Simulated assay, not measured.
Amino acid sequence: MAGTSDKLERRAFLFSLIGVSLVFALMMQPFFAPIFWACAISVIFYPFQKRVLARWPNRRNLVALLTLTLCVVLVIIPVLFVATSFVTEGVGLFQKVQSGEVNLADYVDKIKQAFPGIQALAERFDIDLERIKQQAVQAFTGAGQFLAKRALAVGQNTFQFFLNLALMLYLAFFLLRDGDAMAAMLIRALPLGDEREKLLFAKFAEVTRATIKGNLVVAITQGALGGLIFWWLGIPGAFLWGVVMAVLSLIPAVGAGLIWLPVAVYLYAVGDVISATVLLLYGIFVIGLVDNILRPILVGRDTKLPDYVVLFSTLGGLAMFGITGFALGPLLAALFVAFWGIFIREFNEGEPAAALLEQQSDRSGSE
């Protein structure tokens, strides 16, 4: 009878634990983005924190504050500056489109006139280019309206924005200071087995560093190269288009090409063959090679995910979580692969998680 009572109490406690945890997660849902980015900051800057802490082991508060200050200076302030400039120039361009100073339909018509074969090819496959033109203009106008609304919303919700930023930095400070103790506590609390949990935590840290640092390096490089060639060729709004290419480059394989390729086609259409050829060759062999060379090195190698998985998980993450998804998508994909790797090795081949962890460490060390 006592055994039955103990089982009942244990089950009741577990159900209560799950219920309380779900309610707590729902309560934290509005702060998901600040919490995630605080975790990402602590993971990315942990190696620096560890090196400094080795010199000052009794100054955890000071070291955490120093690390957080470094993050603000190197990452947050530049990102805020670029984002503000991007929104300002984007809204300015949208206002020119609305006033008629910039006519998007004329640009499309010039391309059609310059390449009459496109019209014949479209008629052969029953493609309505006029409708596509209208949809493209509407899409650009809609994007401009969205950007203007978002800029207005940010202006109206400045307090909310800076509150989230402050919450992110506040939590990041404690994660940097007490991260080791928190990770050890989670390993003790989760009922997955210590070796599995260490493997999953190591994978989380590895993929977070790879996706955020790698994608940001690729985005900054492609955006800077794209803005530079636009400025050199005298294309208006070089800074704006550079930032757009940087943002789009978060989408592997196709990102920045969505900007420079149509511009090259337009330059051919208006007869500026030299500039168009320079932009096309530069886009393929400079901007494109950055994606083809740097991304596999910085992202694919460290996440140990195939390029196509990185692509689809990035797109899925962006669709589901917004801008945070460029990091969260590949992270979930890597955890998915890690869970199934543990399952296959332990339940099908009988290889313990410890052996898998050792293999992962050896592989990381060899690279």
Score class of each variant (00 low, 15 high):
residue 262 P to V: 00
residue 187 I to Q: 13
residue 314 T to K: 09
residue 194 D to Q: 11
residue 62 L to M: 05
residue 293 I to K: 10
residue 285 F to C: 10
residue 98 Q to D: 11
residue 176 L to S: 04
residue 41 I to D: 04
residue 129 L to N: 10
residue 9 E to M: 15
residue 49 Q to L: 00
residue 206 E to G: 06
residue 320 M to P: 00
residue 101 E to M: 04
residue 111 I to E: 12
residue 209 R to G: 12
residue 338 A to W: 04
residue 339 F to C: 14
residue 64 A to D: 11
residue 197 E to Q: 09
residue 352 P to Y: 00
residue 299 V to Q: 08
residue 257 G to N: 13
residue 192 L to Q: 05
residue 230 F to H: 03
residue 36 F to H: 04
residue 217 V to Y: 15
residue 11 R to D: 11
residue 186 L to E: 12
residue 112 K to V: 09
residue 153 A to S: 10
residue 70 L to M: 04
residue 100 G to F: 10
residue 277 T to M: 12
residue 317 G to T: 08
residue 95 Q to C: 01
residue 292 N to M: 03
residue 166 A to P: 01
residue 48 F to N: 08
residue 234 G to D: 14
residue 5 S to W: 08
residue 59 R to K: 15
residue 353 A to S: 11
residue 201 F to G: 12
residue 312 F to M: 11
residue 95 Q to V: 09
residue 143 A to I: 07
residue 87 V to L: 13
residue 323 I to R: 01
residue 139 A to E: 15
residue 187 I to M: 11
residue 146 F to H: 02
residue 292 N to D: 08
residue 101 E to D: 15
residue 286 V to T: 14
residue 191 P to G: 02
residue 247 V to K: 00
residue 360 Q to R: 13
residue 10 R to G: 08
residue 103 N to F: 04
residue 36 F to N: 04
residue 78 P to M: 02
residue 329 G to Y: 11
residue 261 L to E: 02
residue 259 I to F: 05
residue 318 L to N: 07
residue 283 G to M: 06
residue 292 N to V: 00
residue 139 A to F: 13
residue 327 A to M: 12
residue 340 W to M: 14
residue 367 E to N: 13
residue 73 V to W: 08
residue 30 P to G: 09
residue 204 F to S: 09
residue 149 K to R: 07
residue 93 L to F: 14
residue 283 G to H: 06
residue 363 R to S: 15
residue 43 V to N: 04
residue 275 S to A: 14
residue 355 A to F: 00
residue 248 L to T: 07
residue 344 I to K: 15
residue 149 K to Q: 12
residue 211 T to S: 14
residue 356 L to C: 09
residue 266 Y to A: 12
residue 79 V to E: 02
residue 204 F to G: 04
residue 92 G to H: 02
residue 32 F to H: 11
residue 79 V to C: 03
residue 307 D to V: 05
residue 35 I to E: 01
residue 152 L to A: 11
residue 174 F to R: 03
residue 291 D to R: 05
residue 303 T to W: 04
residue 314 T to I: 02
residue 43 V to R: 05
residue 111 I to C: 05
residue 161 F to I: 01
residue 16 S to G: 15
residue 187 I to S: 08
residue 151 A to H: 07
residue 55 R to K: 12
residue 348 N to R: 14
residue 249 S to C: 08
residue 52 V to W: 13
residue 268 Y to L: 15
residue 288 G to M: 12
residue 289 L to W: 10
residue 212 I to N: 01
residue 22 L to I: 15
residue 77 I to G: 02
residue 122 A to M: 09
residue 265 V to D: 10
residue 312 F to D: 07
residue 4 T to G: 12
residue 99 S to N: 12
residue 263 V to C: 09
residue 124 R to C: 01
residue 257 G to K: 05
residue 102 V to W: 11
residue 122 A to Q: 10
